[in-house]
Amino acid sequence: MNQSVVVFIKRLFLFMALLIVADNIIGYGLETIYFGQKKGQFAQTTFSIDNTTQDILIFGSSRAVRHYSPNVLSKALNMSCYNVGRDAQSLPYYAAMQEAIFTRYKPKMIIVDVNNWELAPGEAKYEKLSILLPYYRHHPELAPYLKQSGQWEGIKLLSRTYPYNSSLFILAYNFLFANKLIADEHGFAPLTGKMTSAMLDDYASRLKLNSQASAESDKIIDRKALNYYRQFLANTNTHNIKTYVVISPKVLKEPLDARNKLLKKIAQEYPNVKFIDFSDDKDYNMMYGKFADVFHLNNEGAEEFTRDLIPFLN
């Protein structure tokens, strides 16, 4: 064999060995930092998957995290409560979290916050499941969800560093400034600040334009997401868990609501599920003072909404 081929193969093996060693060292370090966190969204997700025992669990996206106060619910219903929502997530994530949590225990009540855009076509909601990659090693039940982002995900996960891809900045910040992080209240992380009327006007004009542009595409449904929604509700039905599908308040009623109607129709197919729609509620529509931004209630709005929700849960 050519001498340079031998040299190349030797060096290639050596280089690969170096990469494997480095991967394990870096991966171990990141894993230690990740699972050692006590505050922040990573810690909240870890707690949700590994430690929740509460009677009520709240699932959803950032709107769930910012809108539902477990303390208010606990006091009113005399049941413990935890908010397992996560920013920028969608139906596949709720289903994955439900699956991981149900392997340990079943809550008595579930509230799931949904939105029309969760049924909109798009791969982003599946790609964002990658935030669950750090749990892959200890939660094999998450594997089918993680493979949504590609059939070779199992091979990528041979790397110990890969699960922490794209989370280094948050990880570093949470590690370095752990003392400055504000602890959530059982997963609830309300926003402060108030929207202004100018922000509302601006949003109204953009929403109008967007609705005109999306009138046709509003009828296109992401079948996979819809299946996750059905699966989520069917699981609660199997275990006879009281479930509330809620559309929490919006600063403006969205002109396109075809997907909301579909969410409602499917929820009504399950006897244990009740559908509650606050999207058109006059106490919140146009009440920009109760919102921190165009998508989220502020802390006062969230407390008020949680109190308004209680009569529906009793």
Binding site: P121, G122, E123, S217, K219, I220, I221, D222, R223, K224, L226, A258, K261, L262, K265
Partner: peptide, 11 residues
């Protein structure tokens, strides 16, 4: 109820 086009993704 509108007629839905069950499509996994956009065209």
């Amino acid at each position: 109820m509108p007629q839905f086009c069950l499509e996994q993704e956009s065209f």
